[in-house]
Amino acid sequence: MIVADRKPIQEILEMVKDCKKVLIVGCKGCVTVCNVGGSKEVGVLAATLKIAFKKEEISIEMDEKTLERQCDPEYVDQLKDMVDDYDGIISMACGVGPQFLSAAYPEQRFFPAVNTTFFGGAVGHGIWEERCAGCGTCVIHYFDGMCPIARCSKSLLNGPCGGSADGKCEISKDLECIWDMIVRKKMEHGRIDDLLEMKPAKDWQTARDGGPRKSVREELANE
C-alpha cells in the first residue's frame, strides 16, 4: 500500500488559518490501513485543530467526511453537493487524493494533511517499511523476492557495497542492508551462482525517470 505520515499540526494550521469553514476529507484506502487518514484520523485531526484554533482565539467551523477512495472519480463525485459550502478542504489521502479533488472541483482549494512517503507494508505494530519504488519493471525474482532498487540505499544490482557491515546499511544502523539479506538467502539455498553474473544497467524508462507514467488497459478503456 501507499504509506504516509501526518503533517505536523502547525503546518496544517498555517494552511487553513484564513478559512472560516473547513471540511476534512479522509480516505478508506491505503491511508486508513496505515492509520493516517481514515475516518478515525479525520476525527482526531478535527479535534486537534479545534483546540489549536481555540487557543489562538480563532473561530473556525469544521466538518468531517470520509470517502471510499479519493483516487477514483466515482467516489470523488460524492462531494459535489457540499464542496461549495467550505472555504477550504483538507485531504487526508495520499498525494493522489487532493489532486483528484482539485481536478474535480477547480473552484475549491485543497490542502494535503499528510506527507506521502512510500509503497510498503507494516512490519510490526505501528511500523511500516518501504518495499517498492515503482520502477515499472519488476526484477525481484532475481533476488529471491527482495528488491534492491527500493531497499538498497544505492539501488545496487550487483551485490553489497563496501559499506555493508553486520547486516546493516552504511547509512544507518537502523537500516538492514538488503544485499546482506539477499546474499545470505542465496547462500543458504545454494543459489549463490545466481549472483555471479553481472546484471546489466537498468533501463529506467519505465520508472519515473522516463517521465510521468500512464497505464492504459485497452480492454477496459474501450468499454
Binding site: N158, G159, D180, L195
Partner: peptide, 12 residues
Amino acid sequence: ADPFEYRVHRLA
C-alpha cells in the same frame, strides 16, 4: 565488509 564469504565473488 559483509558478508565476508561473498566478497571474493564480488571481486571476481
